[in-house]
Every structure is written in structure tokens, then in C-alpha cells.
Amino acid sequence: MTTAPITYHPAPSAPAFTMPKGACDTHCHVFGPAAVFPYDPASKLHPGDAPKDKLFALHDSLGIERCVIVHSGVHGFDTRATADALAARQGTYLGVALMPHDVSDDDIARHHDMGFRGIRFNYMAHLTPGATMEQLLRLSERLARFDWHLAIHMDNALIESMAPGLAKASTPVIIDHMGRIDASQGLDQAPFGALQRLMENEHMWVKVSGCERASRQDAPYADAVPFARTLVEKFPDRVLWGTDWPHPNFRADPPDDGVLVDLIPQMAQTAELQRKLLVDNPMRLYRFEK
């Protein structure tokens, strides 16, 4: 399959918002370079390269000091591309892996030593299906022994049906991208209500990333901000933020990361909330080196 051209924004604008010291991007990816880390033939998405040096340059320009790279399905279960990036910024960059539900404890331990701290499962039509709920819960019991977490990327229509099972997990569970809600449906929509009820469980976390995906408007994606603000204000100690760079499979031209950063003070309207979102919460969950 032919690899697509590079699609991340080539020159993001300088944001007006200044990151607090120790700020963390808890959701981004690296792709390739494919010549070194080939894409999984089974992947439906074969994007252009988005290598670690481009990610590092973006973070340096935005004042982001810590990061969690989420391994992408474009590489399948081959975690080398992500591990290579973690090794380059050891201690300040950690990772979330894609692994089968029956991964061995030895393999988890090996990835822990490389800087991985959790496993992600996808429940989206365009991605390889995740594990069953029974498999997730069995895995969560083992992950708890390693202080790892589960990350769940799901279609908003699945939040209500998956919630009872996720509420029983033995380890922290992170819901990616605000549960992929559709901002055009308003704050009273059923999926967002289900997400908030799920978040009442103390082991549940949510990323207020993906405003550009939730929005049905052009930049600056104003219709999505009230959803993120609601989550930040209701669950200030269990919210995380991420860029989602390089914005894979986005519906239009790649978003300007400077514009996305300037949404942060609209989501978290006080310095205290901003520090929790960007510094304190990631430090507590991922246990970065100080």
C-alpha cells in the first residue's frame, strides 16, 4: 500500500497561552519513519511519516516538558517506533502500548523497563477491534500489579454499554478524547451523560483532548470547549490533556497545534485547574521522574 503524504501542520502558530513548568502532553503518536519501522500491513491507515524529531520540535516550541506517546495501530503490536522515541527522551517521555489481551507478564515487565505504563484498546470502526469486556477485566487484574492502566478509545455510542464493565476494572481506566462525543448534539446528549456518570467511579480518568474531532465546526472548534470545561470542573483531579499529534485520520486539513493549545485556558479557566490538568494529574498517574 502506498504511504500517504505528511499531513500534520507544517508550521503551527505560536499560542498565546504559556504552559506551566512541567506541562505534559498525554496523548500523541509517532509514525515511522516507515523505512525503519514499517507499518502493519493489516492497518487500514498508512499515513506519512511523523517521526520523533518532529514531535520533539513541536513540544519544545510549545513549552511541553513531559509526554506520553500512545502507540499507534499503524504499527500493530510492534512497539519499536514508540520505544525508540521513549529512549531518546528517557524519563520525561513515557508510553502506552498496544498489546493483545493475553500478553504475558514477562512482556509487560519488559515494556515497563522501556517506559510503557499502560495498554490501549480501540473500539472504533476504522481501527482493529479491542478485547471483550471479560478479557479487559482479567487483564486489568494483572496490570494492577505493575501499576499500569487501561486506555479506552471508543465510539460515543458504546459509552453506556461499556460503562458497567469498565466500572469494575482493577486498575485506572482512561477514556480517550472525551469518549469521541459529537459536540453538535449538545451538552444534554445521552453519550455525554453516560460519560459523566462513568467518571463518578474514582478509578476513571478522561482526556480532554480531541476538541477538533468532537467539533463539527472549523477552528477554533468552539462548540467542543463546553464539554471539556464541564469535565475539568467536575473531575479536576482525573482529567488529562493531549495534542493528538500528528492528528491521524483527521476529517480535513491538519489542525494548528497552536490553536489547540489556546483552548486550554478556555477548558481550565484558573491557574489551579490548568496546573492540575497539565502537571499534577499526569505526574500522579504516570509517575514521571521528578
Rank of each mutant, 00 (worst) to 15 (best):
A194D: 05
L195K: 02
L195C: 07
Q196I: 02
Q196K: 14
L198C: 10
E200F: 07
E200Q: 14
N201M: 09
N201H: 14
E202A: 14
H203S: 14
M204Q: 05
M204I: 15
V206G: 01
V206K: 00
V206H: 00
K207T: 14
V208E: 11
G210N: 11
C211W: 04
C211H: 08
E212K: 09
R213H: 10
A214E: 06
S215D: 07
P220R: 12
A222C: 08
D223A: 10
A224H: 09
P226N: 13
F227W: 13
A228H: 08
T230M: 11
L231A: 01
E233K: 08
E233L: 03
F235T: 08
F235C: 12
D237V: 11
D237P: 06
R238F: 00
V239R: 00
L240C: 08
G242M: 13
T243K: 07
W245P: 05
P246Y: 13
P246G: 14
H247G: 03
P248D: 06
N249L: 14
N249K: 09
N249A: 15
F250N: 12
R251S: 11
A252P: 08
P255G: 03
P255H: 09
P255R: 11
G258W: 01
G258R: 12
L260R: 01
V261W: 00
L263R: 01
L263E: 04
P265T: 14
Q266W: 07
M267Q: 12
M267K: 12
A271M: 11
